[in-house]
Design a protein around this nucleic acid. Structure first.
Lengths: 205, 205
DNA sequence: GTGACTATTGGACGAAGGGGCACTATTGTT
DNA sequence: AACAATAGTGCCCCTTCGTCCAATAGTCAC
């Protein structure tokens, strides 16, 4: 069920990165180290719980640029920054972009583990939310255009007769399509249908 | 309709505060200046759109402490920090606590107005969300215990007969209470009722 | 006790939803 | 050309819902 979290460490300082990997590994996490932004982006990201410990200043693309790139790609992996240079502008930019924390090197063990815990909690919430959204979208994607048209009108409270007239079809047909998408959506009552519709609407806006 | 936003400026530096007030006033905002955290907290906060420009280091309670106090009181006024001392720890703490931005003095006009614009947008979103939540809660608060019991079962798709048996009352009575809360909640169909129920559930968790 | 008020109930009728059965038209397949 | 497969339809029956008219029982103030 619960896979052990995978923690990615991106830092060009070999000795620090190795120390971090050892520390986190000893704490029971699965870990992967990368010496640069490019190394990290080289292979596709496995779809599993985790977070990213990211150095800010490195040869090549900076940690901030990596964070922005991940955002553009729609990757929601929580990021914890580690930096040796105290730069307020960097920290603010990172936090505005959604970083979980921004820690100064040398980082204290307690602060690091606290940040990781928050990052993993954040990731877990995001993952379940995304998963539920996917399931919901999938269910609605199986509806035909006609069924979807009837659905849209049912959830606004219209009665079959009105729907039939609006769509230029027989009331009997409305009943059929209605019954069909009730099965497809896995609901047994109009009330549940309305709740499902509201959950779908939340995803859109 | 749209009140001009009210911008609060808390800074112990009289000349800077005055300059900020003049600048923002000239830009069309309504402004109020405070020389300390205490001054700001002295009077109740008017309930209107706005944001808070807050210095970090001041004699007495710091800006960060004020931010924390506002959070504890449930005040959601967006905060933009201004600081003369570049301190990464402060900036991270402020941003983690939800600050809109954290700007170094001397602050550029463009950066300031950009931050203010984002803060006001954020405030507007929060205010409408809170207002809708209030209205929703108010509508549900008008339901009697019995009506609420029937409501809970209607939205799970139970039919009147089942509800009547569960609650130990006649089906006829269920119908009546059902009609009553439909009026109270201002909906015309079970589908809308379900959507309303889902919106209410969102507020709880 | 009396009257006002609320909650609850019974019976009945029309409107609406749900679904079974059979027919038709269109489309794609062999 | 013959043959499914599918969507749309008409007819009919049953259940459920919404509502009107009326009646009963409990509570509270005076």
């Amino acid at each position: 069920m619960s896979t052990t979290p995978l923690i990615h460490v991106v830092d060009d300082d070999d000795s620090l990165r190795t120390a971090l990997l050892r520390l986190l590994g000893a704490a029971g996490f699965e870990v992967r180290g990368y010496a640069s932004t490019g190394d990290f982006l080289l292979y596709p990201l496995p779809d599993r719980p985790g977070c990213l410990l990211l150095d800010v200043r490195m040869p090549g693309p900076s940690g901030l640029e990596l964070q922005a790139a991940l955002q553009r790609q729609g990757v929601a992996l929580p990021v914890i920054f580690l930096t040796g240079y105290a730069d307020v502008a960097d920290s603010v930019r990172a936090m505005k972009a959604g970083a979980v924390d921004f820690l100064a090197k040398p980082v204290e063990r307690a602060a690091l583990f606290d940040a990781i815990q928050r990052a993993l909690a954040c990731d877990a919430v995001q993952r379940t939310a995304r998963q539920e959204a996917e399931q919901l979208r999938a269910r609605f994607a199986s509806l035909t255009l006609r069924e979807r048209a009837v659905f849209d009108r049912v959830i606004t409270g219209k009665i079959n007769k009105q729907i039939a007239e609006e769509l230029g079809i027989a009331e009997r047909t409305v009943k059929m399509q209605r019954a069909q998408f009730m099965v497809k959506l896995g609901v047994n009552s109009v009330a549940e249908l309305g709740r499902l519709a509201e959950r779908l609407r939340r995803l859109s806006d």
